[in-house]
C-alpha cells in the first residue's frame, strides 16, 4: 500500500472516520471513497495481511465504560535491561501498551512507558506495585502519571487534505 496510489489514499482518508454502524459497513465506506465494496474488502484484507492494519475492530471510550483511572507508568531502566523489562511488562495482563522511548535528560530520565487502566487509582497503584514486586523492579525508579483530564480524543488521522 502506498499513499501515492490515489485509491489507497482515498480509502485511508475515508476510513479515518471509522465504519458506520451499518449491516454492510464496507459498502458504505466504499461509497465514501469512490470504490466498490469488493475493492474495499480486498484492499483492507491485504492491508491486514501485511501488518499495515494491526487490529480492525471496536474502539471504546474506556472512561465511559468505567475505566476512569488511567496511569502512564514511566520507568528509568538501565539501557542493558530495558528490552528484557519491556517484554516482561508487556506480558502482564494489566498492561495495555508498552513502549521504549527516548529519554530527555536531565529532567526526564524515563525510557520505558506502559499504560495501566483501572476503575480507581488505588487499584491501579496496587496493580503497579504488585507488578514491580513480582518482576523485581522495586529499585527501578518509576512514576505513575495519572490523567487528570482528557482534552481531546479523536482517532489518529494521518491525512489532512482540505476538501
Amino acid at each position: 500500500m502506498t499513499l501515492a496510489d490515489p485509491a489507497d489514499r482515498a480509502l485511508l482518508a475515508a476510513l479515518q472516520d471509522g465504519l458506520g454502524p451499518d449491516a454492510r459497513p464496507y459498502a458504505a465506506l466504499a461509497a465514501r471513497c469512490g470504490l466498490n465494496e469488493d475493492e474495499v474488502l480486498q484492499r483492507l484484507q491485504r492491508w491486514r495481511g501485511c501488518g499495515l492494519i494491526r487490529r480492525f475492530g471496536l474502539v471504546v471510550h474506556h472512561r465511559a465504560l468505567g475505566y476512569t483511572a488511567n496511569a502512564m507508568v514511566v520507568w528509568d531502566v538501565p539501557d542493558e535491561r530495558v528490552d528484557e523489562v519491556g517484554r516482561r511488562l508487556a506480558a502482564e495482563p494489566a498492561v495495555h501498551l508498552c513502549y521504549r522511548r527516548r529519554r530527555a535528560l536531565p529532567r526526564w530520565p524515563f525510557n520505558l512507558y506502559c499504560m495501566v487502566h483501572g476503575r480507581d487509582r488505588a487499584t491501579v497503584r496496587a496493580t503497579v506495585a504488585d507488578i514491580a514486586a513480582r518482576l523485581g523492579l522495586e529499585d527501578v525508579p518509576h512514576r505513575l502519571l495519572f490523567s487528570l483530564r482528557r482534552f481531546k480524543q479523536t482517532g489518529a488521522r494521518f491525512i489532512h487534505d482540505t476538501p
Partner: peptide, 16 residues
Amino acid sequence: GLVFRIGPLYNAERFG
C-alpha cells in the same frame, strides 16, 4: 458515548 468508533489501528510507518 460508550463506543468511539469501529476502525483500524495502523502500523503507520508501513505506509510512510
